[in-house]
């Protein structure tokens, strides 16, 4: 479609008349606002967008976007979306999901969608808690989490969502934060431009059941020491004074103080195009070691054929070889006999 014929959209065009039913102060509002701001800028006709969701607070997202929307069942959004995308590859299919929806009940669909590289963009709202069922721990809750269902602390080790996505060989893996609007918008835009599966973990606050889930990272005073915003082609530098960096030491990452003989050139220069997912995997869980920052930005963005294109291609190839199927011929294929 040529861009000349496209209407000029504004944020308003992507808002619905539905009353938004998230709790006041919920991080979901910020995500909704960011997405409603980005969509008009993508140069895509509004009717091409389909937002599919599962169950949970995040999964109410489609009702508030004035696009095609499908609020499905718990965990199954990636599978519904896969069906939509295969049937109609030119649609822009997005999935809004949460940590419980995508990593617990729907974990299987998430990894298989990513493995296949179906052209679906996943916005995974990670608040490390079950909100809609009122406060049970989630698969991303920290070990020892006290919640309604774990009054003495949870015994589960949490998932690192980005590690999981990379383990499934996802071709686009990124992270952003609900309250970092410019960063979030830029990341959503990058995801939109990616051809295959895009997976964004959005660190999101649930002010009712897990308030301050990300505070230790996102508070103004600490964020520059605790978060590293990575960019392709730039060295891994962080800290209030931009004086800390990350370098390779054997097969491990190492935080170093710049100066005293350690210069920028000794640091890792971020390469999101690295085809080996091992590098991005190291980044995705470096904050499991004390002293390491949490990375935000695009960890991995590599090109790979999309699943739906391969399916369509196979249909084209077979049809070109055999000609368009003839039903009458099909029904009488093989050995037949005539009864007079």
């Amino acid at each position: 479609m040529s861009t000349e014929t496209l209407p000029v959209y504004t944020k308003k065009d992507f808002q619905t008349d539905q009353e938004v039913r998230w709790c006041p102060g919920c991080g979901d509002y910020a995500i909704l606002s960011a997405v409603q701001s980005v969509f008009p800028e993508l140069g895509i006709p509004k009717e091409k967008f389909v937002i599919v969701s599962g169950i949970g607070c995040s999964s109410r997202f489609p009702y508030y976007m004035n696009t095609y929307g499908f609020h499905s069942i718990h965990g199954r959004a990636p599978a519904v979306a896969t069906g939509v995308k295969i049937a109609h590859p030119e649609l822009e299919v997005w999935v809004a999901t949460g940590d419980g929806d995508s990593l617990s009940i729907g974990g299987n669909h998430t990894i298989h969608m990513l493995r296949r590289n179906v052209g679906i963009k996943v916005l995974m709202f990670n608040n490390r808690i079950y909100g809609l069922t009122k406060g049970q721990y989630s698969p991303t809750s920290e070990i020892g989490k006290k919640s309604k269902s774990t009054p003495f602390g949870s015994a589960d080790r949490p998932f690192y969502p980005l590690s999981l996505a990379l383990g499934a060989d996802a071709t686009f893996v990124a992270r952003s934060v609900d309250v970092f609007q410019p960063h979030l918008k830029a990341t959503v835009k990058r995801a939109a431009a990616h051809k295959g599966s895009s997976f964004i973990e959005i660190m999101q606050n649930c002010n009712i059941f897990n308030d301050g889930a990300w505070e230790s990272l996102t508070e103004k005073e600490v964020r520059e020491d605790h978060i590293i915003a990575i960019e392709h082609g730039k060295p891994l530098i962080f800290g209030k004074n931009k004086d800390k960096g990350i370098r390779m030491n054997g097969l491990e990452l190492e935080v170093v103080q710049l100066g005293n003989g350690i210069a920028e050139k000794d640091l890792i220069v971020h390469d999101e195009k690295n085809h080996n997912p091992a590098y991005a995997f190291l980044l995705s869980r470096m904050d499991s070691t004390p002293g390491f920052p949490t990375p935000i930005g695009v960890l991995r963005a590599v090109d790979a054929p999309r699943y739906e294109d391969r399916i369509a291609e196979q249909i084209r190839e077979v049809t070109a070889k055999r000609g368009k199927g003839d039903l009458a011929k099909l029904l009488r294929q093989g050995d037949t006999w005539e009864v007079k």
Binding site: V52, F70, S72, I73, R76, P78, A79, V80, A81, T82, G83, V84, K85, I86, A87, N108, H109, H112, I311, Q314, I315, E317, V318, T319, K321, R322, G323, K324, G325, L327, L330
Partner: peptide, 23 residues
Amino acid sequence: KDFGVVTFQAEDEIAAVTSAIGA
């Protein structure tokens, strides 16, 4: 495939039916 038939061998029975619903 020459009849445009798409067969999707899903990751499980649930994805099999929900992908069909999506289609």
